[in-house]
Design a protein around this nucleic acid. Sequence first.
DNA 1: AATATTTTGCAACAAAGTTGCATTGTTGTA
DNA 2: TACAACAATGCAACTTTGTTGCAAAATATT
Lengths: 139, 139
Amino acid sequence: MQDKINDILKKNHLSITEARKKILALFWESGNAMAHGDIEQKSSEEFDRVTIYRTLQTFVEKGIIHTIPTADNSVRYALCKDECGAGHHHDDHVHFICDDCGTTYCIDEVNVPKVKLPKGFKAAQTDLVISGTCNKCEQ
Amino acid sequence: MQDKINDILKKNHLSITEARKKILALFWESGNAMAHGDIEQKSSEEFDRVTIYRTLQTFVEKGIIHTIPTADNSVRYALCKDECGAGHHHDDHVHFICDDCGTTYCIDEVNVPKVKLPKGFKAAQTDLVISGTCNKCEQ
DNA sequence: AATATTTTGCAACAAAGTTGCATTGTTGTA
DNA sequence: TACAACAATGCAACTTTGTTGCAAAATATT
């Protein structure tokens, strides 16, 4: 996995640093989306808060991760599909946020339907955000 | 309009106060979604920041307004359809956020398609968030 | 290995949101 | 309408979240 991570960083002309390797690895291990706070905790204060902010920002700019809209104000990040292995890039995402445990899932099986917008509106990105109860939290 | 506003507040067992009347009126006048900051500006610092936070929170709890997920971390609020006059309540929303001017539109003409989720996932709310260029910002 | 470039951590700051409590405003009742 | 009960507001202090500039450290380039 370390090789894969190095590849991604090289491909994006980024220096290979401890912080970037660790944070990328965290995304892989978790599988789900993570908020800044999650990363801060999971890296057990190994890196400065500022470094994490800047790393996430860099990753978003390079298209390695993407932000997920949430109704509360917590920004969450997840690996872009490109980097998930599927190998095709697109800007449409379906995400499921569990109201119980807060976990954010990327739902890849579902396609975002094309929406016909009123005249003059041009879509650049479409996010379908579904909240409810996940399969771990249902009784 | 003042009557309508009073009705809504009464119906929800809320005291009729200046702050609530003014903030509800702002939502009507604007037509679009508003962030906390917008409200603070538009009420020209008539009310304490804390009052605005608490009022918005109360309105959300009572189902008078709802939050809109956004990819940046700005929480936005909009009137629920119930209170918009359409008279039917549902938890599915289509919103358009302009990357240029930042305006958030509630797109009512479009229906959120029902999405089939993996086993064990139960949807409570579905938000379709589209970002791009609005009809005022296109050249 | 030495230099150029990039990244990091620190400090200081700005913005956003929260909490407790005394004061004020609103409501229901006599 | 006046009074008591209750709810909402404003203030102050605080926490959390995110940003910026700059020197020190790590990484890349030759």
